[in-house]
Write a protein that binds this DNA or RNA. Structure first.
Lengths: 256, 256
DNA sequence: GGAGGACTATTGGTCAGACCATACTTCCAC
DNA sequence: GTGGAAGTATGGTCTGACCAATAGTCCTCC
């Protein structure tokens, strides 16, 4: 089978003037397979944890070669929709997109899209990080607060020892985001932290004292959250973020 | 070359007790290629618009077969990092991740991840959509406002004619998001609208009158934005979104 | 009888070479 | 010059094969 040659499995033969304007369809069989499986997942015919037939099986069912099936699986895998395992009992297992994977996509977009300026990234982060403050104030538990304070203590100690890093600052913000107890928010905010980190690292070289002030602001913020004082917490976070942003901006300006 | 067999190009030979705990690395050559090209892009050695060597060239350079190179390209393509064109002068062109592509990833995550509840999605949307109000109030131009009002007029007409759809409501919110004039925010908020649409459509069947009230609220919001009245605009948007969310929630509850 | 190891079957990962479809280039004839 | 025809580079797919990884099975040895 499949003698008519490549492409004919995906295309509906543009010859003949009878069925004009009809098929045209996609030029890639692998993409057609991706769409099909994707739809099966979205419609609930395939659910997380379920196992797709083996590649060799899929070949026969789709009427394509193994190469094509494999490319389709790569695409699905890249989208986080399936996980492929090797060995007996291996194969493609339906899986839910992970926060990490999506996060990397967002991060790529933030850092590599030429239409997005650093100022826009900063602003978007501000919107998110301020927006969650009311949620965090409402939902943070005693343990959450205690954890944050521990982080502040550790930061203070690190500053005293001269080992404070920007990663520790980023860690604080990540933890705060987690206190919203909302996976969607956490996913959205996560990707911002690494790009921020790189610019902050650069900025810190210019202003090494920044760390100490930052930690102080962190601690004040935590206390405001503990008191469920939304306005105060918001104001503190805004001041903290805007000061950081200004510092980064200033440096990037002095370098241009 | 490549006689030692598959996998040996990606693995660093776990034999020998000298270099214990060292390599182990990834088992897939295609993934190694992806990482390498990805790094080249991030480091700026490859910039948008640039063309990668042909698949056959890449085979030789990486010392792998064409299948492997192609799988790598599929992964990069799925991530929106390259675009592949056929024909002479075709090939893989470096491209910046598009908002659409990333958006679909986020959407997949929001709708298919079992750890994310609809309530979380609603809340995240609330945070974003409220967070941008100050930005929108500050940055919206006369034309922007006029455009929104036109949309409201069209909606009113549609309601009178009985042809109002939830898509029109979603369109309004998408337009508002665009008024922030911030690509990052637009990218983050976009994916929320389609999932919202599906639940709202269902909700509307239960409460057909909702549309008219919604449009009234839209219009009031626009006027507040025009007056740069941030508190009022925020309050209006919050009320609007929370009412919608409640309606959706109520319906999904009555169905369970 | 139990524990450990060898065997086997299944399945993904890769290779090699081939062919077709597409789209740009070049060039020739008019 | 302009239109079309031939040439060429390139991706898309197929085929058939082998290797590598893994889980289950069975067999041996204690």
């Amino acid at each position: 089978m499949n003698r008519p040659g490549p492409g004919s499995a995906a295309k509906s033969a543009p010859r003949g003037a009878d069925d004009m304007f009809n098929p045209v369809s996609l030029a890639r069989a692998s993409q057609a397979i991706v769409d099909q499986i994707r739809e099966l997942i979205q419609d609930g015919h395939l659910t997380a944890g379920e196992r797709l037939p083996s590649e060799r099986d899929l070949c026969e069912r789709f009427g394509v070669s193994r190469v094509t099936v494999r490319e389709a699986l790569r695409i699905l895998e890249a989208g986080g929709l399936v996980t492929v395992k090797v060995g007996a009992r291996g194969g493609a297992y339906i899986t839910s997109p992970s926060s990490d994977r999506i996060g990397r996509g967002i991060e790529d977009y933030l850092t590599m899209s030429p239409t997005i300026t650093p100022a826009e990234v900063t602003e978007a982060r501000l919107v998110l990080e301020l927006g969650i403050v009311p949620v965090v104030c409402e939902r943070a538990t005693e343990e959450d607060i205690a954890g944050l304070l521990e982080l502040c203590d550790a930061a203070d100690a690190a500053i005293a020892a001269g080992t404070y890093t920007m990663e520790m600052s980023a860690e604080f913000h990540i933890r705060v985001a987690r206190l919203a107890h909302n996976g969607a928010i956490e996913m959205l905010l996560g990707p911002f932290h690494r790009p921020m980190l790189t610019s902050m690292k650069a900025a810190r070289e210019a202003a090494p004292a920044m760390g100490a002030l930052g930690v102080k602001e962190h601690r004040k913020f935590v206390l405001a959250v503990r008191d469920h004082d939304v306005p105060k917490a918001t104001a503190l976070m805004r001041a903290h973020l805007e000061r950081t942003a200004a510092r980064v901006q200033q440096r990037s300006k002095s370098h241009s």
